[in-house]
Structures are given as structure tokens and as C-alpha cells.
Design a binder for these strands. Structure first.
Lengths: 225, 225
DNA sequence: TCAAAAGTGTTTGTTATACACCCATGT
DNA sequence: ACATGGGTGTATAACAAACACTTTTGA
């Protein structure tokens, strides 16, 4: 049974993943869009009796089977963005951890792939514009809020965090400086655990301390990178 | 003749103005909403053959007769935000200069007033939430982009700029430090003109130099306050 | 002459930046 | 031994914060 949908409005999601020091985006090819055969963002419609945030999570969960960090960042409504139809789309970006990364092929009625955000193929409609806008939004947010951890495993070495910020912000950081800056914030917990199977000195693993962070925010602390 | 509208979707605008060292928001009382009699944000529907950004400008222009700086900042779509109906609204904030401020009563089929953003009355639907969200968005943007000038006259004294930032960011700045910081950016032009009719030493007036700013941006300059 | 804001300069402490350097590990 | 990243320390420059002070103007 198909539930009633809101007409003329859709949701599209830019799903970001971090793998091999690259920022990647999840693309799909729906069997429905046979004509175009272009890669597209995962998306869907909104039910009449569901909040839009819930719709965004549902659509992504139907495809990947998991719940992830999601953020609405813009709504796109140029008249000609979808040929021969009037469609407004509300866009979200999602940040997924590497363990989720692999689960992205749940349903087999569609093709799925991850691509480097800096090397996109031709995309359906205005989906390239939407991705660039998502990247811009993510860049703004990641510098003032600790959302980057949503792209890393729960336990990670400091250099992974640095590489993540470097690839998203498209810049380089000095290792000692980055290290001391992030550690001075006191929002990371150093674990006993260490890296395994690396061909060099293994690094300590850290995890993000959300409780500590929330407490610091109360006191007026400001995350800034 | 009424043009065809997109169903279930509306646009609402948070119009910010700066007057008497206060950040104010434009509220209206539409005759249509007789039942509720609550103050509300100015808003309207989207035509089938018009971009949403255009719709936002049109709706505001119909009411105030002017074009202003507008920025889309979020879309609100909780199921119960409008009783007995399903309505998603795309929200914009607008920044208007004081000369426009007075023109806000163009049409007389509605009541209009400016209220302090920090002292809001009871509002229609979720319009209070939308305003708070708009303020948050404005705060983020005004610290990293020179959009604040859209709330000031073309020619303004430095202290007006400082007061503007203080009231929006809800903080205080040290006058000499604020002054030197903004002047070091080299994005203001000092005019020969001076303040008039003040009961104290008149200040030099400045204007924002958009050309200079764009050129600096090219070179990697970053506005930050 | 006083109040109110304009406008300039200095001092101090904190951060950012750029390095140099040693450590641990697998090949 | 050496390549690779882990991890620490330091010297310098740049900047932020606090504040003292003089100037101008109308009432």
C-alpha cells in the first residue's frame, strides 16, 4: 500500500563518506529513471503525515539500512531544474562512518557507488549544484562544530582527523599545531587502544567526548578549527 | 487573474531592520487570518512558473515596494506546524536599510509593525521558531561575510556598525579595537561627509567598498568579526 | 564646563606559525 | 638502515584585550 505523498516536493540527500583520505559522495542510478541513465542523488517523496526531517531519514534508511547524522542545508526550486515538471527539492547532507560505508547496497533494485566529491561525473538535473552547495555548508559547519567525528570510526588516530579536515577544507595543517590545538580543547579521550597492522609506529586512538563537549559549551566554549 | 500556485508549499520571510540600536523584525496581520488574529511573518505562495528565490522577492516587494538583500536559510515542515493542513514553508531572511524601513506600509489591507527581535509577541504557527532560526543563521553569516552593511544606510559612522554587530551577536566590543580591526581590512571608504545634527563631535562617514572586497576575496582574504 | 562620542596610541598576554627534533615499527 | 608516520618542544611573529588619553561639539 502506497501512502499519500506531497506533490511537487521531493527530498534529496548528499551522503558524505571519508575513505582513503578522500571525501566521497554516494550516488545512485534508479531503475525508474531509465531514460536518462545518469547518476543521481538518493532521494524520494514526503508523506503527508511525516515531518520532513523524518522523511529524509526514512528515505536514506530504506536505502542504507542505517540512521546517520543528517542536516538540512537548502531548498532548490528553479523552474527549469526538472524538465517538463515543477519540482522543488529539499536537500540534506548526511555524514556516515566507515562501518556504515559498506552497507550502502541494501536494495538491489538500483546501482550505487561512491565517488570523490572533487571528481564528479555528469549528474541528473541540478544535482551537481546541490552537491557543491552541500560541500560549502559542510565546510562552514565543520569549522565551528564538532560534526566531523561523524565521518570517522568511533576510535580514530589524530592524523585521521587532521586528514579529514584537510580534505574537506581543501588545505594543509601543520601536524604539531593541529595536534596541540585539538588536544587543548579537551574534547577527546585518549584510549589505551592502539592502531593495528600499520607499517610504522602505531598511533594512539582517541574518541570524541560528547558529554565533555556539551559541558564546555554550557560554559561558553567555542569549537573552532 | 490568479496564477496557478504550487500546493502545500509557502514562503515566509523574516525581515530584519536596524533602528535605534535595536534589531527589529517586520510582522503583519493579514485580514485573511481573521480567526487567529495573531501577528505573523509576511509570506505567500509560489507560482508554478517562477523560481522560489523570485517568489520570495516578489512577495516582499508586493508588500514593501522594494528589493532587498534576501537569503534562504531553512525549510520548515513539521506535520503539525499548521493545524488541519499540511504546509511546508521555505524561509528567507531579508536585510533592509533604514530608508526602506519606512516604506513597509505599502498596502493597506493589512496591519504591519516592527518589533524587537528579542521581545517577540505571540506569533502564528511556528513563526517564533522560524525567527529564532533566522537570527541564528544571520549570526553565523554576519561574522564571516560583510552582509551587515545591508542593514545600514549607504553612508554610516563606524560606531553604528559596531552597535549593529553588538546587537546582532549580543555582545560588546571595545571601540578602539573594533575600529582598528575593521579599518585594517581596507574594505571601507572614508568619506569627506560627516554626521549632522548630533549633540556631540560629529563622526566621519564611511561606505562599504564592494569592489575592493571582491578583489580581496580573490586574493584569499577572509572577512571575520 | 560638562556630557557624549570621536579618534589615537600603548601595553600586555595569548595564539598562530614555522620549524627542529626524537621515537617506534615493519620491511 | 630507512621510510613512514607518531609525538614533543621551542622561538618568533601576529593578534586580541584592556585601557589611558586627547579631541570635538552642542547644550
Amino acid at each position: 500500500m502506497q501512502k499519500k505523498r506531497i506533490p511537487s516536493v521531493s527530498i534529496d540527500s548528499v551522503v558524505f563518506g571519508f575513505e582513503e583520505d578522500q571525501l566521497k559522495v554516494l550516488l545512485v542510478k534508479r531503475n525508474i529513471d531509465k531514460e536518462s541513465n545518469l547518476w543521481a542523488l538518493p532521494g524520494g517523496d514526503i508523506c503527508y503525515h511525516e515531518d520532513i526531517d523524518h522523511a529524509a531519514e526514512r528515505i536514506l534508511e530504506e536505502r542504507t539500512g542505517v540512521k546517520v547524522y543528517m542536516k538540512q542545508f537548502g531548498t532548490f526550486g528553479k523552474v527549469d531544474r526538472v524538465p517538463d515538471e515543477r519540482y522543488i527539492t529539499i536537500a540534506y547532507y548526511a555524514l556516515v562512518k566507515p562501518d556504515v560505508y559498506k552497507l550502502s547496497l541494501k536494495k538491489d533494485d538500483c546501482d550505487v557507488k561512491w565517488v570523490n566529491v572533487y571528481d564528479l561525473p555528469n549528474l541528473l538535473y541540478d544535482h551537481d549544484t546541490i552537491i557543491l552547495y552541500a560541500l560549502d555548508s559542510l565546510r562552514r559547519r565543520i569549522r565551528s562544530e564538532p560534526v566531523g567525528f561523524n565521518l570517522l570510526p568511533h576510535h580514530f588516530p589524530l592524523l585521521a582527523l587532521q586528514r579529514l579536515y584537510e580534505v574537506i577544507l581543501d588545505t594543509r595543517f601543520d601536524k604539531p599545531n593541529f595536534r596541540s590545538k585539538i588536544l587543548k580543547m579537551k574534547i577527546l579521550i585518549k584510549l589505551d587502544e592502539k592502531q593495528q597492522g600499520v607499517a610504522y609506529r602505531s598511533a594512539h586512538l582517541f574518541k570524541f567526548d560528547k558529554q565533555r563537549y556539551d559541558a564546555l559549551i554550557e560554559k561558553g566554549f567555542n569549537f573552532e578549527l
